[in-house]
């Protein structure tokens, strides 16, 4: 068991070779313009804390109680912003995918649900795919027709000067039950050929996306736009804009994404 046994804490279930952990957040309007959090649960490596919000917005921080995920781990985060909620979820630090001892892959599943008249900002810090790691991330978003969302995903391939691990990330978005975005990015050892070539990442070591959902986009979608040939704002077939960006490193990636987001206002 090795590292897996050492890392086991209360309410965290060990699965063969790794740790299974989950966090759940439910937010809803309190009827007086504020946001309450009837559910705020995390365990082990996925602790959650409410932090000071601003105005009607509640803020929640994912606090990595330990590094991870390691090979064999399976983390799940579920966030539900119900009617009236204004919720912003961030993370205290970058998530670092590391190799496990038994060389099986790790999984990280994120499920986000936003109801009508609710807004969720899902803005975790970057995910770093360390050399030798093997992680599969799925982010699944369900939105009501009147929901608002800002989602940011940033992936950094390898720590400084290091070859990346294997990373597969699938992002799917449904609005009013209809799938408007389904995308998977696979990179690192074991990824299908050409992932780092001229069609894929071409040597860029940071890749990220923003999903911006605003009901007003249904009538007036944002114009497609390209930034420094490294980022594009792309209206989808719903009230949704996707920003895809590639950059040499995480810092430049963040700058590109911030610039693209500002252009939508």
């Amino acid at each position: 068991m090795g590292a897996g046994a050492d890392r086991r804490v209360d309410r965290v279930t060990a699965v063969p070779g790794g740790v299974r952990a989950s966090a759940r957040v439910l937010a809803r309007g309190d009827g007086r313009g504020g946001t309450v959090l009837p559910v705020l649960e995390g365990e082990g490596p996925l602790a959650v804390r409410r932090t000071r919000g601003s105005g009607a917005e509640a803020r929640v921080m994912l606090v990595g109680a330990m590094s991870g995920p390691l090979g064999g781990d399976h983390f799940t985060v579920e966030v539900h912003a119900a009617s009236g909620a204004r919720l912003r979820v961030g993370s205290a630090a970058a998530t670092l995918a590391l190799p496990g001892q038994d060389r099986t892959g790790a999984r990280y599943d994120v499920r986000l649900t936003v109801d009508d008249d609710a807004e969720l900002c899902w803005l975790p810090e970057q995910l770093i795919s360390a050399g030798g790691s093997d992680l599969r991330v799925t982010t699944s978003v369900d939105l009501a027709a009147g929901a608002r969302l800002l989602l940011r995903e940033e992936q950094v391939l390898g720590r400084a000067g290091e070859e990346p691990g294997s990373l597969t990330s699938r992002l799917s978005v449904r609005t009013a039950g209809r799938c408007v975005l389904d995308q998977e990015l696979a990179c690192g050892p074991g990824a299908p050929g050409g992932w780092d070539g001229p069609a894929g990442l071409a040597g860029h070591r940071a890749v990220g996306q923003l999903v911006v959902v605003r009901p007003e986009f249904a009538g007036e979608p944002p114009e497609p736009r390209v930034f420094e040939e490294g980022a594009a704002v792309m209206p989808l077939t719903g009230p949704v804009a996707l920003v895809t960006a590639v950059a040499a490193d995480g810092l430049r990636l963040r700058r590109l994404l911030d610039g693209a987001l500002a252009s939508l206002d």
Binding site: D182, W195, A199, G200, L201, P224, V226, A231, M234
Partner: peptide
């Protein structure tokens, strides 16, 4: 259709938008 793959190539998309402009 949910079982269809969704593999994407970031620079194909960004490049397509740059090209269209």
């Amino acid at each position: 259709v949910g079982v269809l793959p969704a593999r994407s190539a970031p620079l194909l998309e960004i490049g397509a938008e740059a090209h269209a402009a």
